[in-house]
Simulated assay, not measured.
Amino acid sequence: MSNESHVSDVAFIRALAELLNENDLTELSVKREYGQDDTLNVRVSRRGETVTTQVSPPPAPAAPEPAQTAGAAAAPLGEDPASHPGAVTSPMVGSVYMQAEPGAPSFVSVGQHVTEGDTLLIIEAMKTMNHIPAPRGGIVTRILVEDGAAVEYGAPLMIIE
């Protein structure tokens, strides 16, 4: 599969996710055939925020590395990160991006000092890129979301202490 078709597949999957949200659907499944042995099966489900993609041949590109987390051992089991006094929560529903563009360095990393107003990440909502500023200064101790993940309103994004 060419890089161009991969880019169009990503746009197609995002459009399906938007369709799911706009029409208040719980699940959407589509099969796209490019040729005799080249298909794209996509299932987007609201339950558990599951997104399943199956490409035959060639295999789908590897998923991005998970976001770094620190201090996970310090958090008691069952503790809701949103209740942490240093939690930064999502002001909207959308997709999280940890850097300005693919390949660019992340806006923040665990252990980094931030000042009030620094961009922490971007949330894409309805094709608009919204820079999320630090509500206060401090040290980023935990990043609770992965790049490209869908977030809901009020979902904890990171902890700044």
Rank of each mutant, 00 (worst) to 15 (best):
A17E: 15
E18S: 12
E18M: 07
E18K: 14
L19E: 15
L20G: 11
L20Q: 13
N21Y: 11
E22P: 00
D24W: 01
T26A: 01
T26C: 00
E27V: 13
E27R: 14
L28Y: 02
L28F: 02
L28T: 08
L28W: 02
V30C: 08
K31T: 15
R32G: 00
E33N: 03
E33K: 04
E33Y: 01
E33A: 04
Y34I: 00
G35D: 14
Q36C: 02
Q36R: 14
L40K: 05
L40S: 03
N41Q: 07
V42L: 03
R43S: 13
R43C: 04
R46L: 13
R47C: 01
G48N: 15
E49C: 02
T50H: 05
V51Q: 09
T52A: 03
T53G: 01
T53K: 02
Q54S: 08
Q54R: 14
Q54N: 10
V55L: 05
S56H: 08
P57I: 04
P58G: 12
P58W: 12
P61E: 02
A63N: 06
A63M: 12
P64A: 12
P64R: 11
E65M: 11
E65H: 10
E65Q: 14
P66W: 03
Q68H: 12
Q68N: 13
A73N: 06
A75K: 13
P76I: 13
P76F: 13
G78R: 04
D80M: 07
D80K: 14
P81N: 04
A82M: 02
S83D: 15
S83G: 03
H84K: 12
P85E: 15
A87K: 09
A87F: 10
V88T: 06
T89A: 11
S90G: 09
P91K: 03
M92Y: 03
M92Q: 11
V93P: 01
V93D: 07
G94F: 10
G94K: 06
G94N: 12
V96K: 10
V96C: 06
Q99F: 01
Q99R: 15
A100V: 06
E101N: 04
G103H: 14
G103Y: 13
G103F: 13
A104R: 09
A104F: 00
S106A: 15
S106P: 15
S106F: 09
F107G: 13
F107A: 14
V108F: 04
V108D: 11
S109I: 05
S109C: 03
S109E: 15
S109W: 00
V110A: 06
G111R: 10
Q112H: 05
H113A: 11
V114T: 08
V114N: 08
V114R: 09
V114E: 11
G117A: 08
G117D: 06
D118R: 03
D118C: 04
T119W: 00
T119M: 02
L120A: 03
L121E: 05
L121V: 07
L121I: 08
I122F: 05
I122D: 08
I123G: 06
I123Y: 08
I123D: 08
E124K: 08
A125Y: 05
A125E: 07
A125I: 08
A125D: 05
T128G: 00
T128Y: 02
M129H: 06
M129Q: 14
M129E: 13
N130R: 02
I132G: 01
I132A: 03
P133A: 11
P135Q: 02
R136P: 00
R136E: 06
